[in-house]
Amino acid sequence: MAALMNLDEIKKLLELMDANKVVELEVEEEGKKIRLRRADGVTGTLSVLAPPAPPVPLMQVPGVSAAASLTAESGAAAKRPENMAEIKSPLVGTFYRAPKPDADPYVNVGDEVGPEKVLCIVEAMKVMNEIKAEMHGIVREILVKNGQAVEFGELLFVIEKK
């Protein structure tokens, strides 16, 4: 562990987790990995990749866009207008936009959707979870790529409510 990072760095990460309400954190460096997890609350992740990547390239905090970094973008995501609803992943899994590999996606940006409209599947160990729109509106953003791994609370879609 000492070779991976020193205690001060771990402390800093813990402070950062606390400040951003992150409860779980995985750090991977040259094939070594440590995971920090607080006992309470919901899960977010903070990935720190080994050099040459910058120390904190990607951060996912519940309520903030998955694509947002710690910089100005997170502020922008938080200021989303009230009529824009965020659809987040209820579980850790793999995101699929279509029911099978060669099929059309469930939805595209600009599509009008109703409450029962399936937007995507998030699969976790063969548990297939269809995510429904649960509202009337128009799909304005799709933030995750087909086949991408998603975390708990990760933002998947933005829907303009009608």
């Binding site: 040259e30 850790v92 086949g147 791994a149």
Partner: peptide, 16 residues
Amino acid sequence: RLESGHVRAVRGEHVE
């Protein structure tokens, strides 16, 4: 365990 000798953890939920 990779051929390079490194060890890698993969979350079950992320296995496509």
